[in-house]
Simulated assay, not measured.
Amino acid sequence: MNNLLKTFVVEDDPEQLATLKQIITNHIMINDFDMGLTLATSRAQDILDYLQTNPAVEGLYFLDIEYTGQALNGLELATKIRELDVNAKIVFVSTHSEMAFLTFERRIEPLDFVVKDLGQDTVKAKVEKDIRVAYERYTKQGVVSKAMFSYSKGGQLFNLPLDQVLFIETGTSRNKLVLHLTERIVQYNGKISDETVAHPELFRVHKSFLVNPQKLVRVDKQNQLGYFENGESVDIAIRKMHDLLALIKKSQLSVELS
């Protein structure tokens, strides 16, 4: 399902990991939410490995603060998740309540901080509530932000359907972007790095190109090019080709590969 909200758990205590898995899967099943438990692991690095090979994930993450003997702690993991998944919904489940303020200091913006010492029933209730809140926000975000594209020009804000956007490229002068739409081209002030963050449904295929994967009709793997229905094309960086092909396969997009 394309609108599936992916859920992740990192907990190095086997018993607590099993408990969280059961709470999450049961609550999803009972409520028939369009979401699933994608990965439950004791290793923090497993999440980063997944996100680096599966772009455009907007997930719900349940993390601890401390992972004994591992290179990453929960705060460091959350920071890296936020870099890879800008719309991540992060919940800390930990005994270290005194660390909660650090999540604000590091601008992680967690959805919740669940203290394990409150007891199993309270933890279960809070985790279930976090699932419901995250799912509600995700579905609303899908209706509002994913359907529209916004840009500012001459002090005026313009909104248009996302399916009109083919790609964005850097302009010939600094901080200028060229927006290629199905029926016209618009130039406006901006940075492609900012647009990458603002519109996670678009995919950065090259330092100069941000594309709408839904509008690609063909990818020429040998010549590193992506084509659109109107005949326009963009360069695809070698290091981005693998991720783009993975995205096309995962999203089941109708793109010719040659």
Rank of each mutant, 00 (worst) to 15 (best):
Q164E: 15
D32H: 15
N54G: 09
A78C: 11
M1Q: 08
V115F: 02
F62V: 02
I90W: 07
G190F: 03
L77Q: 04
K129S: 10
S42I: 05
R82N: 12
L39T: 02
E183L: 10
D112H: 12
L111I: 12
F209R: 08
I30R: 15
F228T: 06
H180M: 12
G142R: 11
F149W: 10
I185L: 02
A78R: 01
L60D: 02
K221P: 01
L102V: 11
L20N: 02
D13L: 09
N31C: 13
K124P: 00
Y61S: 05
E229G: 03
Q22N: 09
K191R: 15
D85N: 12
V133R: 12
V234S: 12
E169M: 08
N31Q: 14
K129M: 08
Y67C: 02
E66Y: 05
A40I: 05
V91A: 05
V133W: 06
D64M: 00
L244I: 05
K146Y: 12
A40M: 10
V144F: 05
V255K: 05
L60H: 08
D49M: 07
Q52V: 04
N175K: 13
D34A: 14
N73V: 03
D117Q: 10
R239K: 11
F104D: 07
L179V: 08
A147H: 08
Q70P: 06
G231I: 12
N159M: 14
G226L: 09
F62Q: 01
L77Y: 11
I108S: 04
D85E: 08
S97E: 13
Q252V: 07
V144Q: 06
S150V: 08
L72R: 09
D194G: 05
D32I: 11
F8Q: 02
A88F: 07
N3G: 04
Q252E: 14
Q22W: 01
Q224Y: 13
V165H: 06
L179Q: 09
K176R: 15
S251P: 00
D13Y: 06
L77K: 05
S152K: 14
L160E: 09
R43N: 09
V205R: 00
K249G: 03
D117C: 02
R174M: 03
Q224A: 09
E105K: 15
Q45V: 13
E229V: 10
L253G: 06
T196W: 02
Q224P: 00
L253N: 03
I236S: 00
S173V: 15
P213D: 03
Q187Y: 02
K240E: 13
L202G: 01
D34V: 14
L63T: 03
E136R: 14
L216I: 12
H199R: 11
F167Y: 15
H180F: 11
T38I: 10
D163Q: 14
K250H: 13
R174N: 07
H206G: 00
L51A: 09
T41E: 03
G231E: 13
T19M: 07
K153D: 08
I24C: 00
A88H: 05
E195Y: 13
R82P: 09
V165T: 01
L257N: 02
T53D: 12
F92T: 04
K221D: 03
K89W: 01
L202K: 09
